[in-house]
């Protein structure tokens, strides 16, 4: 498996919206690289005819009837919001020119 470059670490951090300090990037590159090396064993396992398992217990999708239940009062729903304007949650503008905009989808 290929070695992890610093550029890759920065790209993944941006995808994950995770600010990393320069020393964290370095450490992450080293540690993730070492972990991935330990995982190299899986590449040589022949799984060509093995189905992927997403869940341990096979079951059909459970569904619910289309009947409304009471809503949270807006005051309760918004009680933990870091910044509010009335019943709205306020965030920095998402349509201002982005500095690094990969992955967002307005």
């Amino acid at each position: 498996m290929p070695e992890l470059t610093r550029k890759e670490v920065e790209e993944i951090a941006l995808l994950a919206r995770l600010h990393l300090a320069p020393d964290e990037i370095e450490r992450m590159q080293r540690e993730l690289g070492a972990i991935l090396e330990h995982f190299a064993a899986i590449a040589s396992v022949d799984t060509s005819s093995v189905p992927a398992m997403t869940h341990a217990v096979p079951m059909d999708l459970r569904m619910r009837v289309d009947v409304p239940e009471p809503s949270l009062p807006a005051e309760v729903a918004l009680a933990n919001a870091p910044r509010r304007d009335g019943d709205l949650i306020v965030v920095p503008s998402s349509i201002a020119p982005a500095r690094s905009g990969t992955g967002t989808e307005p």
């Binding site: 933990n80 919001a81 949650i89 965030v91 920095p92 982005a98």
Partner: peptide, 17 residues
């Protein structure tokens, strides 16, 4: 955005990161 800790920033992507 909706709960927990937020570090404010001028730009949305920066606020998330």
């Amino acid at each position: 955005v909706r709960y927990g800790r937020r570090v404010e920033a001028g730009d949305l992507t920066e606020m998330y990161a």
